[in-house]
Design a protein around this nucleic acid. Structure first.
Lengths: 193, 193
DNA sequence: TGAAATTCTAGAAAAATATTCTAGTCTGAT
DNA sequence: ATCAGACTAGAATATTTTTCTAGAATTTCA
């Protein structure tokens, strides 16, 4: 089997523990207990605690990145492209709140850990593909002149901060209500006027 | 003495360890070693490992929030206010990169931990003060209609994402170079047109 | 001042947690 | 049926955090 069921059980149990207790506070024992796996099985699949975190993180951004790229490829208009960054992001967060919270809060941990290079490599590749998709709009003059490094931050930054607040329970209103507004703001920030 | 020198030594040692090894990987022993304190002293001042993290976090956002609020109070024009959010933020990050990295990466941990309520309380108060300062501009119609919950995210979101990238070493260009550009974008996003 | 109270420091001991290791069981291919 | 490799189990070990007892330094105030 490509990815043992047990391995997925462990990852799901881990995410549930992380959500309820926080990453810091969950012990291997809790994950073992909740997943029904044994210590041996756990270490067979992941090797150490940090790698459970790393795999969960990488699978999460992988899922999201694949979805975004797939959407972008079949979106022709620059406005729709930019708005898809935001609305797609918010849709994903709303559909996967626990995973999204985990990802928003653990980038630093994974970056600093033994899987950091793998994460950076993934981000480089993803960034390259995104840049490729956007190039034709950029070349066609659809966007205002903006350093390449700033583009994605400007587009996605506000939505990300809103998502953080919403996931922390700080915002009462459903995040989805702001979806189109934030998409419009993003487009206004980068379009050629 | 209001805040024992030893306590500050421990916090500084902890931040240095966190920067070099990552929060996960630094042990109490490393902090003890680097600070020159004893285990007893460490636990006398903080009680447990998590509280070292919590105090460092709260001191950091406290420092930054105080600076921002002080600046805002003596800034009269709405445009200057909004731009100060961004430029003040970037200045602080550039001046305190280690502290900023630590704060950007550990909100979730502190929020989920035993000091979470303290953090939320701080954020509520800070948010209230900020809202108070901005009210007159809002009432004067300086900003475009925008849900209250979105305003700060829209203003600060892009700068925050850029800061994250810069601190992770992902961006070659100095963050400060984008300071005025990001401030202008923030202002364009919220001003009444 | 000087004695009592409090704060702080020390490091050994205990508790909690993560990881390794050995001995298996199960599954699928030949 | 049997062999190889993937997987599971849990006891043993190693690491790390936390507690505890004792004593040093500092502050308080009579």
């Amino acid at each position: 089997m490509a990815r043992s069921a047990r391995k997925q059980q462990i990852l799901q149990a881990a995410l549930a523990c992380f959500t309820e207790q926080g990453v810091e506070a969950t012990t291997i024992e809790m994950i073992r207990d909740r997943s029904g796996a044994s210590i041996g099985s756990l270490y067979h699949h992941f090797g150490n605690r940090e790698r459970i975190i790393g795999v969960l993180y990488l699978e999460g951004i992988g899922e999201y990145a694949a979805r975004l790229e797939a959407g972008l490829i079949e979106t022709l208009e620059p406005e729709a492209c930019v708005k898809l960054f935001v609305s797609g992001y918010i849709d994903w967060v709303v559909a996967n709140p626990d995973w999204a919270r985990f990802i928003l809060h653990n980038r630093g941990r994974v970056e600093a850990g033994e899987m950091g290079e793998q994460l950076r490599e993934f981000n480089r590749e993803h960034g390259r593909r995104i840049a490729g998709i956007l190039r034709r709009h950029r070349d066609a003059g659809a966007f205002k002149p903006l350093p390449k490094e700033c583009f994605v931050s400007v587009v996605i930054g506000p939505a990300q901060d809103m998502a953080r607040n919403w996931l922390a329970g700080r915002s009462k209103t459903a995040l989805a209500e702001y979806r189109d507004l934030l998409a419009q703001i993003a487009w206004d920030s980068v379009r050629q006027h």
